[in-house]
Design a protein around this nucleic acid. Structure first.
Lengths: 209, 209, 209, 209
DNA sequence: CATGAATGAGGCTTCATTCAT
DNA sequence: GATGAATGAAGCCTCATTCAT
């Protein structure tokens, strides 16, 4: 593609992008036909193929854009923050808010994972996310703030908590994203155990298994 | 359907179920045609429709069966364990092992969420999972073992950690499921923060936000 | 086919014949599958092909049998009657009664006409019906009882009135077949015009067209 | 459907309608595949579904259109005629001519009656036909021109004569429609009995049954 | 005789994509 | 830039028929 677009053209293109993304998310990628997209926008079929090479290309574009935006949001969220723990917390907050505001893009990632031609993109994005967060976790460990565990595992766990709570509590149950972010942070920080003595005892039991 | 099946028939049916599940997982639901399934099993097309009403019905069946099996595995895993915390830990171990052994069923759930005709099933299964785990979390709180937080949130977070680590570390990176389970447990128990003093300080900062 | 059948076999065969005929009539020939027939009778598919070579053969058999029965009914109805006009009347009565009692066979004839492989059978049956009735009409003319018109046309018209009233008034509206038969007879005998002088006048008008 | 069609599109659509109707009539509805229709018109398979939602929908459209046209023809045929008897006669003439000119549509109605999803349409059309003709018959009775019998029965009988003679004499035997129409009229007017004395005698016999 | 299982051609329909205007 | 029309491969499913047991 890479066409030079007029102002009107640019607008058309984002309309397509946005409408398609929402429809894909609501009805599924395969269930949504190109015909239904152009019909929904009241334009001819030619329009679609004027702006995009194919349905797949359009989808990939949506996906890439979503990843880019989420990443920018996270970057903004932690800007000006230097404490590694706070950076992580702000990252969680930023992600949660973005996910709640772009819920339709969330499910698209999920779908993309299920087809081999799209999956690499998702995996790359995920690796990127880990790479982005990893330094802060590592710094936290180095600074003696965080538990001395495999930082990659920790990072993955944080992402797991954040995205799952986003889906279940924010998207499905409609809870307030900031509150949920706070809960995710709290969980990630301290886990479920009551602090103090309890630890040692149970850990002892564990080791005995 | 609900056909009376002979021994041979029962076997065929499972073959179909299993082969289809693996193919759906590998290539995607829509990308896998009924034709390719029967071809893979070297049988005529009619065989498929002798055992299943439709491709959708088959898929739903696979999904339901997977949820049932995972649930049974979890039940078995915590059987004989009375301590709530240990129950949770064993639940995580059981789930992780099952997910690693049935990785193909994992991705199917992910896909199912992306189409409205399948999504309700997934959501129901997820609610079920929360309901199954919730009592143990609640019991842990009552017993003074767990932090006094919204038990539903905690449960969801545990599930989020478990499933995400299963995917990223076990399925994608091929790590040992038992080790990953242990890591998940550790994260869920204690979070990322180094115990002791750190807490109060940062929490104070948090409140000031 | 032409298999030697045991007593049980003969019964099975007519069960199939009857059930198939009713189902064909209710749902249509193509819409009724062999599978649905054997299922409705709670037998295996082998049974069907034990008694009949094919679905088409079965249908043709039903058709032929129906024509034969109707013809026998008509023969019985006019037996012992020597007056040509009365013979016609009794033929109408007999037909009407038979049609009302075998309504499902009625619609099958209608369908058969729409496919070239069955149509000849229907046409042959219809020719037969005309040939059966024609002599009585001809005799009526010779005897000076009936109008001196093309007897074939008259015969066809009588059949048309009978079958159409059977369908609309008896089958669809549920009226009493004997009453309808009487109405058909009355119409065929005297037409719609009031007797006497009216005729000439209008006929004169007609000729002037 | 309800698509905006260009001139070319409108033409295509009629081609499909017409070709399909003729093929359905010649070979039967089920025996005619969508594939054979588009092949016969030398177009791609998609063309069919560009203009119609389904094979069934197309068929229903053909049916409805045929009923509409026949009705218009009848209306035209009796236009300018005020005498009820003449109206009936002209109606018969018009119908006969139309049926002979659209013989392929005739058999389609017959088929439609044999499947429950189409049958209501046919029955509705038939009721309409009766309703259209009924007033003239009733008027004829009131005016003392027609025999004082149940007008609905008379109407149905007239339709029965007309359609049956159309099929047997015009379509199957290829006789001249105008001549057949005249014969139908004659039959409907006066029946088969020679006028005058015969009546009373036989009617007496009838009553004695 | 009878059953459950299997076959595979063929039917209807969808849909990404292309094209003439 | 845009439209309606067209293409045709491919998908899901049905069903008459056959076969092993």
């Amino acid at each position: 593609m890479a066409r030079k677009l007029t102002a009107k053209g640019t607008k058309r293109r984002s309309e397509l992008l946005d409408y398609a993304a929402r429809t894909f998310a609501r009805d599924g990628y395969h269930t949504t036909s190109v015909a239904s997209i152009v019909e929904g926008l009241q334009v001819g079929k030619g329009v679609f193929y004027w702006y995009f090479d194919s349905k797949d290309e359009l989808f990939i574009h949506i996906l890439a854009e979503a990843q880019r935006e989420l990443r920018l949001t996270q970057r903004d969220a932690i800007a000006g923050e230097h404490d590694p723990v706070r950076r992580i917390e702000q990252g969680i907050r930023g992600s949660m808010r973005w996910l709640s505001e772009h819920r339709h893009l969330f499910v698209l990632t999920e779908f993309a994972r299920t087809e081999e031609r799209f999956a690499p993109l998702v995996r790359a994005g995920e690796r990127q996310a880990v790479e982005d967060a990893l330094p802060h976790v590592a710094a936290g460990i180095t600074a003696g703030l965080l538990r001395r565990e495999d930082p990659e595992v920790m990072t993955a766990a944080i992402i797991g908590v954040t995205s799952h709570l986003a889906r279940v509590l924010v998207l499905e149950q409609g809870r307030d994203p900031d509150r949920v972010a706070q809960a995710a942070i709290s969980f990630c920080r301290d886990g479920i155990m009551r602090a103090a003595e309890g630890h040692a005892a149970v850990l002892a039991g564990r080791t005995a298994d």
